[in-house]
Design a binder for these strands. Structure first.
Lengths: 154, 154
DNA sequence: TACTTTTGTATCGTGCACGACACAAATTAC
DNA sequence: GTAATTTGTGTCGTGCACGATACAAAAGTA
């Protein structure tokens, strides 16, 4: 395949990733709407359902997002009474994020969601083992791409 | 795997897709910056390098984007003198998008980009055949997920 | 101790992304 | 041939996503 052919939309590898990402967020929407949250907010909740008290920094590194994305996002979640923000006593620069009762309760409703999405994806020829392989591939790429970014900073 | 376990961040399938999508856009950035365009604008150019004259509608359906995303995007591209917009004579509702000379010339510079990105992705254990498989999986999902959306509209 | 650097978080500006809605041109129905 | 509907594009408001930048707290250094 020459360079001319690589420039065809159908040859691009990144394009389907970009499209599926957006379409998946859209597929999540009806379920998340019922909970009054967005997809990035759902990701923050996933982190918080696993860890009682995390700093902003921990959230950004787990989700590979910048603080300037997460900060306003957390503000909206605080305004929606899903989380609380308090300064760490050990390090006054850090902000600790904790779930409110309302935020904790959403976990029960949310537990129904991943399986429903999985069922949609399985209506194709793609089966569970294929999905696991795909996930591993993507996780390798996350490793490379998130390091790539660090290189340029240094 | 029970529902509790599915709610772990590490168990989510959509999350790596979401992350890789964003990280790839970021990896494209230095190359696209040199051309003075963004990743979604690059996608529009890919369509236009293949087709001399397309309507807004054709762009939205090829990229799975809404008109209310593409319209302002095209306006910015027109302001940057990359494209021209003219009303179709056969159907006064349609707007035809065509490349300017500047827009056509970018194709040469752009032809170097996809391969560079591919090289980054190949620094992992993931090899070209794996990427092709991944691409096919994602394209199947695009089919299902973009139909899913149409279902709800009807 | 005073100075410099690093770290953790946040604000600002720009560009998507999309739901809700608007509106005119074209098509269809009666 | 006029009214109702569909189609193609666009505006508006909200929420990310991120580069550039700011700033205070903490850590390191002379």
């Amino acid at each position: 395949m020459n360079k001319e052919e690589q420039l065809k939309l159908s040859s691009q590898v990144c394009f389907p990733i970009y499209s599926v990402s957006r379409l998946l967020t859209k597929a999540y929407k009806p379920y998340l709407d019922r909970m009054g949250i967005t997809y990035p907010q759902y990701l923050v909740l996933l982190v918080l359902w696993e860890n009682d008290s995390v700093t902003v920094n921990e959230i950004t590194s787990k989700l590979y997002l910048n603080t300037n994305t997460v900060s306003p996002l957390l503000k909206r979640m605080e305004a929606a009474h899903l989380i609380e923000r308090k300064r760490s006593k050990s390090d006054e620069r850090s902000v600790l994020i904790e779930l409110t009762l309302k935020g904790k309760e959403l976990k029960t409703i949310a537990s129904e969601v991943p399986d429903k999405l999985l069922q949609v994806l399985l209506t194709t020829n793609v089966q569970l083992p294929d999905i696991m392989t795909l996930k591993e591939t993507l996780e390798e790429w996350i490793e490379v791409l998130s390091e790539q970014k660090n290189k340029e900073n240094k």
